[in-house]
Each structure stands twice: as C-alpha cells, then as structure tokens.
Design a protein around this nucleic acid. Structure first.
Lengths: 353, 353
DNA sequence: TATAGTTGGTTAAACGATTAATCATCTTGG
DNA sequence: CCAAGATGATTAATCGTTTAACCAACTATA
C-alpha cells in the first residue's frame, strides 16, 4: 500500500532530468524563471518519483516551520474539542500543522508550554488563555481567543451580544424572575455573558447571579445548587453561562421533581455535545468557532508573512473578527412561564376564541 | 520579558569559547569525548547566551523530528480531551511534540490526515481509529488506541473486564432486569463492554441490548429512548456503554418522573466531565488514560529508536499495556433496587433487629 | 553592428546540528 | 627510549531546500 521507502529529493529529480536542483526548486515553487515546458516535465517527474518535500530542510533554510502552536488552558475543558477541531481545520487548509500544548490550568504550566512550543520553532501560536491571565509579549506572533474585552490580538465571539439574545428570549417567554448562574468572577467571558444577559432581560426582569465558584469554596466542589428553593421563591428562569452549569441546573431541578420547561426554563452557552441529547434538550448559544478559527489562523498567517508585524494590529485586518456573533439555538428546555400561558389563555378567552 | 532576538547557535557558542562547533555539540549531547571542565564551560556559555537548539537542523541531519502525530476519529468526541491531555503529557516528558490531526469521522479524511502527518515528518503516530476501520501499514511506527480485540500494536483499556466490574456492581445491588444501552454494533470497544457487562451480570440477570444507532436510523437522531416503558416492563438497571448515553438515559428517566436511583439505576463508561456534576452524579468506569498514553508513547519511542521495529512486536515490550484496568467509580446514580431494599428490611425484621 | 534588456538556466553559499574520520598530545608498558 | 593506546579536540562532509549572484544565449534597439 505504501510506496517506496525514501521519498525522492529535489536533487534526485534534478539528476533524473539532467537539470540543476535550483531549477527544480523554482519550477515546483513557481518562483524563479523556468520555461513552461521544463516546468511541466519537472512537475511530472516529481509526481512519478513520489517527491515529498522535506519540511525539515525547508524550515532550516527559511526559518519557518509551517507549524502553529495551540495553547489551551485546560484540554479537558469540554469546549476544547470544538476549538481544536475548528483550528485544525483552518490551519490545515492554510497549510499549517497544529502542535498542541496543554497548560493544565496552571499559569506556570502555561508559560512552560509556550516555551516548549517556541523551542520547537512554531511560526506562531493561538492561545486560549487561562481565566484572568495575560500573555506576556513573546517574540512570536500570537492570536488570542478569549473575550473581546481582553486587550491584544484577540478574536472572539460576541459573548455580550449572545447574552442579550438569550436575555431577550427568556424575557419574551414571560420570565420575570431569572437566576443567572456563573462560576468565576475572574472570567472575562463569563462577565460579558452575564452583562449581556442582564441587558437583554431588561429592567422589568428581576435577576440575581449565583456564583457557583463561591458556593463551592464553602460547600465543596460538586455541591447542590439549591435551585428548588429558588423555584419556591418564584424564579422561573435559570440562565447558565455555560452548558455544563446548565446541565447541572437541569438535572438538579429534574431530580427534585421540577418539570422543565413547564415549571422552570434552563439555558446555557456553547452548545456542547450533550446539550442536544439530554431530555429536554437545552436551549443554548452556539459559537461560530469555524469563523473564529479562520480569523485567528488568517491573522497569524499575515503576521508570520510580515515577519512579526506589530502585535496590536494583527487582527484588525479582518473586521468581522472582533465580535463574532453567536447563534441562538432554541430547544425544549426553555418555554413560556405558566403565568404567561394562563394569561394567553385568558386573553384568548376574552377574544371569544 | 523575552530575551534577545535570534537565539544563539552552536557555532556562536563555539566562537565565543574559541573551540570547534563539533566540540560544542559533543559537550551538549554528552556523546563524544570532551574534558569535564570544557564541557562545563560550554554548558555554562550555552546557558548564558540563551542557546536554543534548532529542531529543524537537527531533524534535517538526523532524520528525526521529535514529533509524533495524534490522529483522532473525531476531535469532537467528548473523551478526546482526556486522551489528548494524557498523550500530550506523556509525549512532552518523553521529549516529543504532538501534532494533531482530525479525521472528522470519515475514513478518507483519516487517510488524508495520516498522509499530512507523514509529510510533516512525524517520527510516529498514535491513532484512535474510526469505528471499524483498520490502519493500513504505513512506513511509520504506529500505536493504536482501541480495544484489545483490535489486531496490531494496540494499547487499550480492558473494556471487557470493566464491563464485568459494572455488571457485578449492578447484580450485587439486586438488579435482575437490566437494559444495556449501546450505539453501534461496529465498535469493538462497545462490543467488549457489552460482553463484559453480560458476563458480570451473570446468568440470573435478564438483560437486553438497546442499539441506539438502529433506533436513530428509523426515528431520527436525538430521538427518545423510550425508557419509561422499559421501567414499566420491570427493568431497574440501565447500563450504557458510554457516559453520553448514560446522560441521555438519566435525563429521559428524570423527565418522565422516574427517580434515579430509587426506581432505576443508571451507569456509564469513561467518567466524562459532566458525570460527576449532574444530579445524581453518574456511576461510571474511568479509563486509566495516563497509563495508556505512556504505553503508547513508550512503545513508539522504542520503535522509533530501533528504526521501525517489526510492527507486531512494538507493544509487547510492556506487558501491562495489553489490557489496562478500568476503575469503577460508584456515585449516586446506582443504588439497590426497591425489591432488594424491601427484602433486606424483611430479612432484618426476621432477625429480630 | 554594437549595446542594452530579456529569458532560461546554473553555481554555490547558506541554514544549524551531527558524526565519521583525522590528528595532535600525553600515557604507559616493554 | 620507542611503539602502541588512550584522550581531547578539530575538520569537513552531510542532511534537502532556498536564493542571491552570475552567465550564456537570444531579441530588440539605436
């Protein structure tokens, strides 16, 4: 199945055709001046001999490896697969390989991971920073995927506007008392989402934020969120800032015998794999990671091409990258409140229908 | 924060100390014959000048890139983060970088991805094959992570034995009618788990297998599993072959007002991130991915060292890799059946306690 | 008919590390 | 005191591409 052992080199092609290796290089890269016919012959010979360019030699000569690094705060983050997939795809079609580095959530590891990537000679890096951390200026082009409020070459979803969408959705369903569920106050992304949610819900809606991180600090990780008490208090909407929290909320409510969405609506962010699979499927906001990945890779590509362009201006090239819109995916975990159903029924009755 | 621009080369170190570059190379690699004192001086100079070895040059000369490829059937598989993390860690400590390639579930893409990795000159690859696919013999060392029943250089968890553990656990809780929930008949892993479950449950337990893939083929993806009807039929145990299915089962049961674990027990495999977070947390089996990753990387390392050792014997080096044991994690989604609780109570009464 | 400008190609020098081959010295044993 | 061996370091070739510099031959220009 596999062809001959050592893949042919340019020199071998050159020897086979009786030309110089420089000409082969020029023909294959289309750079120098080579007659059309010779160029065609060379191309054909390369094909026949099974020529495979040596990335190592090219890297040595040009100083470019054609590899970008992907630094993740914590690979086990459930959103990571989607990010990695999107980036791998975007990078592959731009001719880059993707080297991964995991920082296991620790800031020291993040620095170490970045160092390893640099030693391996990556041409640039895409970093999803650990919550609250900033990336020091390293001598390599970097694109950051985080929230738009992070300074630097950031490309990101418009988390705020996503929050607004969800807030409006919940408000329009008649919810007037909504619990916002977040984890960490340090996360730019979470703060943006919370802000957007509040804005979208509007002034008529009473909302409160539950910081699960604080709760866990006192009651231990994995503790109950105490949501049924909230339902008793009149809360009908539970808007989590990411799907894992939404799932936690959903199952806790269901375990306590509260019907979703009849008695309470639950929503999340990110559209993780399970969100569409649980019962009821979760209403959530999907990030356009393909676009984000393309932006990041493209920006890196430019920066690399220009030989480390000014850091601040990297992303600016593509205006649609500043806040990539999120898409509201409405499923069965959100629905009208009982109150609004009753009101609608009354309204219908009054209309005589 | 970052040091001077172009990192020093061996030649520069040599020039600074007035020795030859070969000596520097020997001192740093500890290979040739260099006096202890000179060696120390060189090492120090390297440190001071901020020497960073050029991977490209080394790769060109030695033919080794120090990079291994990780080919995944579908990056968006929720187990992937754990696998990637484990492999990245094992590879990093063995001095390898990890280049990722996603095959998006398609067999053609898998081949293409492998091709790209080879072109980039990876020294070896770790492949998590798409269900039911076999890896053709490429001219590069390969380690496969799948089920032990896959022929070749496979390292894997002992899925069968894991199934046995879970089967015994459920049987010991008194379950006598258990529904096994799997997705695809083509998956070796799933088949192993199913087999183990049946063996562990023993002959006294009536069990049936629900193939969700078949169900979805007729009723559409994301359809209901119809589990409450099963409960009505007397099923008390629901053993899924992976956590996503378990989650699906759990939420469906809860939505239908069935109490878990009082009326039905639910179990999964893999201990994904949400399993410990939902209410009730899910009883599952955790794979020892760290060990698996170490085995795979170590095996690759040997094969690479020997210059493509005979494929079949790669893994054999480390005997504990054939079937890495899984760890049963008992949480609150499984519990004794009502029947057994009643029986125990009766038993206690009869004992006069 | 010289001269300048193209066109199509070759030469040779990098890039940075590795490594076999070689060469001085310095020890030692006989 | 001399040949043989050990020790410590140097030389130079090599990996496969790229690329600046150069060159020959041909075409158009004055």
């Amino acid at each position: 199945m596999s062809v001959g052992r050592t893949p042919a080199t340019m020199t071998e092609i050159a020897a086979a055709l009786g030309v110089s290796s420089a000409t082969v290089s020029n023909a294959l890269s289309g750079k120098g001046r080579v007659s059309a016919e010779l160029s065609a012959k060379i191309r054909q010979a390369a094909e026949e001999l099974g020529y495979v360019p040596s990335h190592a030699a090219r890297a040595l000569r040009t100083g470019r490896t054609g590899v970008i690094g992907l630094v993740l705060p914590d690979i086990s983050n459930p959103l990571f697969p989607q990010i990695a997939q999107a980036i791998e795809q975007a990078a592959a079609s731009a001719g880059f390989g993707v080297l991964i580095a995991d920082s296991r959530g620790e800031i020291a590891q993040q620095t170490a991971a970045i160092g390893r990537l640099i030693e391996r000679g990556v041409d640039g890096m895409i970093v999803v920073p650990r919550r609250g951390s900033r990336i020091a200026d390293i001598g390599t082009p970097v694109a950051i995927i985080d929230s738009p409020s992070t300074p630097g070459n950031t490309v990101s979803s418009d988390h705020w506007e996503g929050g607004v969408q969800m807030g409006r959705h919940l408000a329009s369903l008649g919810h007037r008392k909504v619990l916002l569920i977040a984890h960490s106050r340090e996360s730019n992304v979470q703060n943006d989402r919370i802000g957007g949610l509040k804005a979208g819900l509007g002034k008529d809606v009473c909302c409160e934020t539950l910081w699960v991180g604080d709760l866990e600090a006192s009651q231990g990780v994995g503790c109950a969120l105490g949501l049924s008490a909230r339902v008793a208090d009149g809360f009908t909407g539970f808007a989590a800032v990411y799907d894992l929290l939404a799932l936690r909320a959903l199952t806790e409510l269901q375990r306590d015998g509260i019907d979703v969405p009849l008695q309470a609506s639950v929503s999340g962010f990110d559209d993780l794999v399970w969100s569409s699979v649980v019962m009821p499927p979760i209403t959530t906001l999907r990030q356009d990671l393909a676009t984000i990945a393309e932006c990041a890779v493209e920006a890196l590509g430019h920066a690399i091409g220009n030989g480390e362009a000014a850091a601040g201006s990297m992303i600016a090239a593509r205006p649609d990258c500043d806040g990539v819109p999120m898409k509201l995916v409405i499923r069965q975990s959100t629905g009208p409140t009982m109150h609004s159903v009753v009101a609608a029924a009354a309204h219908a009755r009054k209309d005589g229908r």
